[in-house]
């Protein structure tokens, strides 16, 4: 069976939290638990004019890749509403190919 995943371009993830809230609303996830959770890496200074500050949303074990949505041809809630349009849903093999030509990307294949 084809495995699906989420490709995240963290070059442009702005850390807006929409993925987290969209997921919680879609799946009625209570306070304190998350279907996808934002990580903040930084800020720290790398060199005189260079800073590390990235955001990466990480799907948790509650993530079902929105099966109930995708089987109807809709995007997962986090992907649909992403403010920076940096999330992509698809077969991991295809997403991995897209990764090959790009930097600052991460591919998740949730359980």
């Amino acid at each position: 069976m084809t495995r699906y995943g989420l490709l995240i371009n963290y070059e442009f993830c702005t850390g807006c939290h929409s993925c987290e809230v969209a997921c919680k609303q879609e799946h009625n996830i209570p306070v304190g638990k998350w279907g996808i959770k934002l990580s903040e890496i930084g800020p720290w200074q790398i060199s005189k004019n260079k800073w590390q500050l990235s955001y990466i949303p990480v799907p948790t074990d509650l993530c079902t890749l929105c099966k109930s949505r995708t089987k109807k041809g809709k995007l997962p809630a986090c992907v649909h509403n992403c403010n920076a349009a940096v999330m992509k849903y698809g077969p991991v093999e295809e997403l991995a190919k897209e990764m090959a030509g790009n930097s600052r990307m991460v591919l998740f294949a949730p359980k």
Binding site: S18, V21, Q25, N81, C82, N83
Partner: peptide
């Protein structure tokens, strides 16, 4: 273009 902030989502 389909993007939405946490405030409208909630």
């Amino acid at each position: 273009q389909g993007r939405l902030c946490p405030r409208c989502l909630a």
